[in-house]
C-alpha cells in the first residue's frame, strides 16, 4: 500500500535528531511536526523570522503579529526567538538549519528539484524555496512517486523550471525512500506491501536496486 500523507510524515520524522533546527515546508512537510518522537527536542524555523514555532493558538491567544511562513496564526515555544527576514535567510543560506523538508513537482538523478512553476499556469512565485534548497546540506523532499496520471516525478532530467540545481540527496515518496548519488537514484526502503517491481515501473530516472530493500518502519 502506498503511504498516506500521515505515514509519509512519520517516515520523514525518523530523520529528526535531538537538538535539530528544522524548516518544514507547506503541505505534507508541515505534518512532520506531529510526529516528533517523545522526549526529543527540535526547534522549528519559519522563514518569515521565527525560530521555535509552537502549535496553533487557542482562540484567546490569536495574535495578528504572530504568524508563520504559511501566514497562519501560530504560537512560540519556550526558548523561541524572532528576527528579521534578512536574519532568517542568513540562517537558511548560511547552512545553520539542520534539516529542511519540502515538497516538489519533480526531482532528477542530478539532485535537481522543480517545485515552483508550471509553464502555462499562473506563476505565483518561489517564496523562500530557492533559498532553502540552496542553503541546506540536509534536505528531504516529500512527494508522491508519480502524478495523478501515473507519470513518474523521479526523472533523469527535470522537465519543469528548476528551484535548485544539484541540491537534493534524499527523497521520501508514498512508495519508497530513495537517495541520490552519482547521477542515479538508489532504492533504500520500500513502503510496506509495495513491491520493488512497482517502484521500478514508476521511477523514470536511473534507479539502482540493491539486493535487499527493506520495508519502511511506519
Amino acid at each position: 500500500m502506498a503511504l498516506s500523507r500521515e505515514q509519509l510524515a512519520m517516515r520523514v520524522a525518523q530523520e529528526l535528531q535531538d537538538g535539530f533546527y528544522v524548516n518544514l515546508g507547506i503541505g505534507i512537510p508541515t505534518l512532520v511536526a506531529n510526529y516528533v518522537p517523545e522526549g526529543m527536542e527540535v526547534m522549528l524555523q519559519s522563514e518569515n523570522g521565527l525560530l521555535g514555532m509552537g502549535p496553533f493558538p487557542t482562540e484567546e491567544e490569536v495574535d495578528a503579529d504572530m504568524i508563520n511562513a504559511g501566514k497562519q496564526t501560530v504560537t512560540t515555544i519556550t526558548g523561541a526567538s524572532i528576527f528579521s527576514s534578512a536574519e532568517s535567510f542568513a540562517m537558511i543560506r548560511g547552512g545553520h538549519v539542520d534539516l529542511t523538508v519540502l515538497g516538489a513537482f519533480e526531482v532528477d538523478v542530478q539532485g535537481n528539484i522543480a517545485s515552483w512553476m508550471i509553464p502555462g499556469k499562473l506563476i505565483k512565485g518561489m517564496g523562500g524555496a530557492m533559498d532553502l534548497v540552496a542553503g541546506a546540506d540536509n534536505i528531504i523532499v516529500t512527494m508522491t512517486h508519480a502524478d495523478k496520471h501515473g507519470n513518474s516525478k523521479l526523472l533523469n532530467e527535470c522537465t519543469l523550471p528548476l528551484t535548485g540545481a544539484g541540491c537534493i540527496k534524499k527523497v521520501v515518496t508514498d512508495l519508497a525512500y530513495l537517495e541520490i548519488e552519482d547521477g542515479q537514484f538508489i532504492l533504500k526502503e520500500r513502503a510496506p506491501g509495495v513491491s520493488v517491481e512497482e517502484i521500478v515501473s514508476k521511477t523514470g530516472g536511473k534507479l539502482v536496486v540493491p539486493d535487499n530493500v527493506p520495508e519502511m518502519n511506519v
Binding site: 534578512a86 543560506r93 512565485g125 518561489m126 517564496g127 523562500g128
Partner: peptide, 22 residues
C-alpha cells in the same frame, strides 16, 4: 492585471529580496 499585461512582476527569491534591501 498581470495576465492583461498591465502589470509587470519581478519574482525574486525571498532571501535574495531581503538581502537586496539589506
Amino acid at each position: 492585471q498581470l495576465l492583461g499585461g498591465e502589470l509587470e512582476v519581478e519574482l525574486t527569491p525571498q532571501g535574495t529580496l531581503a538581502e537586496k534591501m539589506r
